[in-house]
Design a protein around this nucleic acid. Structure first.
Length: 357
DNA sequence: TAGCCGTGGAG
DNA sequence: TCTCCAAGGCT
């Protein structure tokens, strides 16, 4: 059974892959650094979103050493808009460790690579299978779904993950482990989709137990999502002459290391203006004059939503105390700092309405 | 271990 | 407009 399946699985999957694979930039390279980078960027992020970020990055930073030497804020500016910013931080850290401890090359020991920050089971397996042709199954959400259907697994428990891993190790063609891994992910994306499995064109339908039951979409079982809370946020564009104030978010928080217009959450007992005045007093120990409301934007993060209202403000005082880094910048200098998407939405309003009114 | 961590596209 | 979710990892 296993031997029959092993032969069918790899042969059929690779045959399909060879005639259907997408032409992606990181598939043109054998550079482990670039394969690694692409896998970090692809984490929870669609291929079409990643491609332009990947191309910009490898144009500017051509090696692990060049990333290790780079100014982190410059890396973050390249990452701006891609989301999950701790990936960028961890990749930078990992490149520094690699430059210092491994002579700038990815360690040949799998466990040493796996131990680097931001490198988990999936990324380690992807890099070692694609770049070094070692037989590690790269098990991401796609592969879990396909294998849950093939093996008719309802819940992705720890035990079932082990089952999927062991099955793949048995079935993978050791000559082409990287292609097997990529083929499974491509197949998941184009054929074995979440809400619709196109079994009639699937190359491995013959060994799929869920397909035999004619209910592939019910595998694996969906997990209920929690309702996302909503927060009211206020921000100020605080002018002093031709410049306004921006502050840097703490490294280990949401949007860590990115810059933003100062402000914060409106407490239930507060008005937006009262909240803004309090936030700025607490954060900078300065008093501000709050002028007209510029507008508001809505934005959704991974686990909550916000409505962010922006006010024009003025101050004559200089910042007396601040726990964070801050700068006074002109509108043109926005291009020099990484900002979260919600702030860019506010900047877009200012771009059409005028910045300082 | 389940919650935290962004953004944009699909439907 | 709203929900779901996509080449995961960390704590």
């Amino acid at each position: 059974m296993y031997n029959t399946n092993k032969s069918y699985f790899s042969k059929s999957l690779l045959h399909w892959y060879d005639s259907n694979k997408r032409d992606l930039p990181w598939r043109k390279t054998n550079d482990l650094y670039k394969i690694w980078l692409s896998e970090v960027m692809l984490q929870q992020t669609r291929v079409d979103t990643v491609v332009p970020y990947y191309l910009q990055w490898v144009e500017k930073y051509k090696s692990i050493r060049s990333v290790a030497k780079a100014d982190y804020q410059k890396l973050l500016k390249l990452w701006e808009g891609l989301g999950y910013y701790s990936r960028c931080k961890n990749f930078h850290k990992a490149c520094i460790i690699t430059a210092n401890d491994y002579d700038g090359e990815i360690p040949s020991d799998y466990l040493k690579f796996r131990a680097l920050p931001g490198v988990g089971d999936y990324i380690a397996a992807a890099v070692f299978s694609i770049g070094l042709k070692q037989t590690y199954p790269a098990i991401d959400g796609n592969v879990k779904r396909v294998m849950a259907r093939v093996l008719r697994i309802k819940n992705i428990t720890k035990r079932n993950k082990k089952r999927i891993r062991n099955t793949l190790i048995k079935w993978m063609d050791p000559e082409r482990p990287g292609d097997i891994n990529q083929a499974l992910m491509d197949l998941a994306n184009r054929i074995c989709r979440v809400d619709h499995a196109h079994c009639s064109i699937c190359p491995i339908d013959e060994i799929c137990m869920a397909e035999k039951m004619s209910i592939p979409e019910s595998y694996p079982a969906k997990v209920k999502k929690k309702v996302t809370p909503h927060k009211e946020i206020v921000a100020g564009i605080i002018w002093q002459g031709e410049k306004f104030l921006i502050t840097k978010r703490p490294e280990n928080a949401l949007l860590g290391g990115l810059w933003e217009l100062p402000g914060g959450e409106i407490e239930s007992s507060e008005t937006p203006i009262g909240a803004l005045r309090r936030q700025i007093k607490e954060e900078c120990d300065i008093d501000i004059n709050i002028g007209k409301k510029v507008g508001y934007v809505k934005h959704a993060y991974s686990h909550f939503k916000i409505t962010q209202t922006l006010f024009q403000c003025q101050t004559q005082e200089s910042v007396k105390s601040m726990n964070k880094e801050y700068r006074w910048i002109t509108p043109i200098e926005v291009n020099n700092y990484p900002f979260p998407k919600s702030n860019h939405k506010l900047f877009n309003i200012l771009n059409s309405d005028g910045w300082n009114v």
